[in-house]
Every structure is written in structure tokens, then in C-alpha cells.
């Protein structure tokens, strides 16, 4: 196993970066917000991190911290108007945000390098850094799930009316979800920048948005490990089954389709739901006997 990981180190690096973007998507969906803004946050974070290291030679952690902060800022600004919208309207508005970010990236040549992008970004991120970042992200997400914020998110996602009747301020929590999505998106973008050597605005368009969505849909929207598993499957599958690599788009599409139709909770949540049901039935039987 460890040999396999060492042999495919760059692949596993990719999985980790992808799943952080997946978590940016996950956190909003978990709170019942239909945001697709992850790609936009990632773009802002990536350019911030890249510029810091190219222009003023700042160290890795400063760059990542800046990327996460500016992502949070973008999330907070976006959350202000968007928490008032619902469903498809949220989706369309965040899609517009992604397009605005792309076109600003293309227009602001003095800063972003325009269509040619930024090149010669030093590769500052290695597997160890990624593991560290990922464990911090997982720690926060797991504690969040076990405390008040996670409870509020789960109630809002399942039934907004109930949430309100229990005194939960939906708009406030959805704004928090936007900000967290911005932090994770910005962080994911920063990691991309420090791994990819170069950036162009179109790296953060429709395809990135779709893959972030598909990690969450395939992996699961509730359990914290969902997006990680989703990213693992979707990134490794084309590598393990080489002939599939040419049809990456189709494989992605088919898996998304199958997941949403047959396994609407995603791999991890379907399994954990199944397991919980079985355990509950067993304890009930024991209680009766």
C-alpha cells in the first residue's frame, strides 16, 4: 500500500487538493445552500497565493493563509445578498459570480497576466503539507458536525420551516456556510497554485465547478468523509482503468448520473445510513427480548 502511494504521490496530492475543493462545495450543500461559487473562491485564492509568492516571495503558510482569508472575505461579501435567495436562484447567482471572476482574471492583465496567466509559480506544496492541511480541515469539519453548527446545518437542509420554528436563524447560518465555503475554496485554490506551476483564468470555470460538485454528489453530502471518498474514486478510477482515461468526461458524467438516481445520498452516507438502520433494528430486537 505505502509503495503504491509513493509511486503515485502526485496523484494522491491531486486527490487531496481536489477534496479540499470538494469540502468547499460540501459545506454549503450541507447547510442547504445551493451555491456553485467554489470555483470562484478557488480562483481568487489561487491568484492571491501565486502573486504573493511570485511578486514578494512570501513563504508557503503566509500564501495559504492569505488565500483562505481572501476566500472568506469573498464568501462573506457574496453571502450578504445571496442568503436571501433560494434554490435555483442561488445556483444561477453563484454561477454568475464564477463568470465574473473569470472575466476579471482575463481583463486585469497587469495583475493576473490575462489570458496567458501566471507562470513560474514555485512548487511550494508537497505531500506532507497537503496531509497536514487536510487533517486540519477534517478536524474542524468533524467537530463542527458534532456541535451546534452541524446540528443547525442539518436541520436547515432537511426542513427550513422546522429550523425556523426551533429558533434557528436560517439566514445567519447560511451566511456562515458561505464564509466557510470561501475559506476552503480559497485554501484549495492556494494549494492548486503552489502545485501547478502556472494558472490561467479558465482553470476555474465550468469543469472545476462540475468536478467539485461531483465529488460531493458521489461521496456524500452529510458524512464528513463523503467528499474525500468521492475525490478518491473520481481521481483514481481513470488511472487504475487506463482505457477509461480518454473518456474521463463520460465516466464522470455516468457516475454522477448513477449516483444521483440510484444512490442519492452518495457512497458514504448510503453506507452509514444502512449501517445505522441495522444497528437500530438490532438494539430494538435486543430490547424486546
Amino acid at each position: 500500500m505505502s509503495n503504491f502511494i509513493l509511486g503515485h504521490l502526485s496523484l494522491f496530492e491531486l486527490v487531496l487538493v481536489c477534496s479540499i475543493l470538494g469540502y468547499s462545495q460540501y459545506i454549503v450543500l450541507r447547510a442547504g445552500v445551493f451555491s456553485m461559487a467554489t470555483a470562484g473562491f478557488a480562483s481568487i485564492g489561487a491568484y492571491t497565493a501565486a502573486l504573493l509568492s511570485v511578486r514578494i516571495d512570501s513563504p508557503l503558510w503566509v500564501g495559504l493563509l492569505a488565500a483562505a482569508t481572501i476566500g472568506a472575505l469573498a464568501g462573506a461579501i457574496l453571502a450578504w445578498p445571496l442568503a436571501r435567495l433560494r434554490g435555483v436562484f442561488q445556483a444561477i447567482a453563484t454561477l454568475a459570480f464564477v463568470q465574473i471572476v473569470i472575466s476579471i482574471g482575463l481583463y486585469w492583465e497587469s495583475m493576473t497576466g490575462g489570458a496567458l496567466g501566471l507562470n513560474g509559480i514555485p512548487k511550494l506544496v508537497h505531500f506532507g503539507h497537503l496531509l497536514l492541511v487536510m487533517s486540519m480541515v477534517l478536524y474542524v469539519l468533524i467537530t463542527l458536525s458534532r456541535t451546534g453548527i452541524g446540528r443547525a446545518f442539518d436541520i436547515i437542509r432537511q426542513d427550513e420551516t422546522v429550523a425556523v420554528s426551533l429558533g434557528i436563524s436560517v439566514v445567519k447560518y447560511q451566511r456562515l456556510a458561505f464564509v466557510l465555503s470561501g475559506v476552503l475554496g480559497g485554501l484549495g485554490g492556494g494549494l492548486m497554485a503552489y502545485r501547478n506551476y502556472s494558472l490561467v483564468p479558465e482553470d476555474f470555470g465550468f469543469p472545476l465547478l462540475i468536478s467539485a460538485l461531483s465529488f460531493v454528489v458521489l461521496g456524500g453530502r452529510i458524512a464528513v468523509f463523503g467528499p474525500l471518498v468521492g475525490a478518491l474514486i473520481l481521481t483514481l478510477l481513470p488511472e487504475l482503468a487506463r482505457p477509461l482515461a480518454d473518456y474521463r468526461l463520460a465516466v464522470n458524467g455516468v457516475l454522477m448520473l448513477l449516483a444521483i438516481i440510484y444512490w442519492p445520498y452518495g457512497v458514504v452516507d448510503t453506507l452509514s445510513l444502512h449501517w445505522r438502520q441495522r444497528r437500530a433494528v438490532r438494539t430494538q430486537v435486543e430490547a424486546r427480548s
Binding site: 467537530t143 458534532r146 456541535t147 451546534g148 446540528r151 443547525a152 442539518d154 426551533l166
Partner: peptide, 26 residues
């Protein structure tokens, strides 16, 4: 448990970083 939301005292920060108080509350 979801009904207890009104009585939550721990802040978002302690919920995010899992302070003992937040865990205790849960």
C-alpha cells in the same frame, strides 16, 4: 436534541474548534 437549539450557549468559534465547552454542551 434539535429542540435544544434555543439553549445553545457556546459560540461559533468554540463549535468550529471543538472546545471542551462546546463538546460538553452537546
Amino acid at each position: 436534541v434539535s429542540g435544544f437549539h434555543r439553549h445553545e450557549r457556546s459560540s461559533w468559534w468554540s463549535s468550529l474548534f471543538g472546545t471542551p465547552a462546546a463538546r460538553q454542551e452537546t
